Structure formats: C-alpha cells, structure tokens
Lab assay of single mutants.
Amino acid sequence: EVTIKANLIFANGSTQTAEFKGTFEKATSEAYAYADTLKKDNGEYTVDVADKGYTLNIKFAG
C-alpha cells in the first residue's frame, strides 16, 4: 500500500491537501477522480507530478 499526496491549489490562492491510499494505480486514479469532481466549481486543472508520482500538485484555473 502506498499513499499519494495531492496538493490542491485553487485560483483564489487557498490550498488543501488530500491523501489517497491503496496500490499506486488505485490511489493515483482516486486522486485524479477527486480533482475531476472539483473541476465543476473550480475550473480546469493542471497537474505537476513530483516525488516520482507520489505527490501531485493540482492547480485549478478558477
């Protein structure tokens, strides 16, 4: 089991951190699915992958 950390960075400057656990593939998939649910209210997003994929910096356009 691994932990994927998602740093969520919103257009208004606020930030939030979420963690997803499971296999690497499952946790990564859940992180992207979570970002997709936030897209409606926060706009499109870009992802900067860090720490060999264990950290995702997800920035929303607003």
Rank of each mutant, 00 (worst) to 15 (best):
T37H: 10
A18P: 03
G13M: 11
G22K: 01
T46Y: 12
N42E: 11
G53L: 03
K52H: 12
A33H: 13
L38I: 07
G22H: 02
Y32T: 05
A18V: 14
T15Q: 13
T46Q: 06
E25K: 05
K26Y: 13
I4M: 03
Y34N: 03
N12V: 05
K40A: 10
F60W: 06
S14H: 13
F24L: 11
D41T: 15
A27Y: 01
Q16G: 09
E25Q: 06
T46E: 10
G22D: 05
A35I: 10
F20C: 02
T3N: 06
F60S: 00
E25A: 08
A27G: 04
F60A: 00
E44I: 11
V49M: 12
Y34D: 01
K26P: 02
G22M: 02
A31T: 05
N57G: 04
A50I: 11
D48H: 11
T55H: 04
K52L: 12
A35K: 00
V2N: 05
T46I: 14
T28H: 09
K52I: 08
E44L: 15
D41I: 10
N57I: 15
Q16C: 05
N7I: 15
T17S: 10
A61G: 08
V47A: 07
A61W: 08
E1Y: 07
A50M: 10
T23P: 09
K5W: 14
K21I: 13
Q16Y: 11
K21G: 07
V49N: 05
F20L: 02
I9Q: 10
G53T: 03
T37V: 12
K59Q: 08
S29F: 10
K39G: 06
L8W: 05
K21W: 11
T55Y: 04
L56S: 00
A35F: 13
D36W: 04
I9E: 07
K26H: 15
A18G: 06
D36K: 06
F20M: 02
K59H: 13
N12K: 08
I58Q: 00
K52S: 15
A35W: 02
T55D: 02
T15H: 12
A18K: 12
D36R: 05
T28A: 06
S14M: 13
A61H: 15
Y45V: 02
T23S: 15
G13R: 10
G62S: 11
A27F: 00
T55E: 07
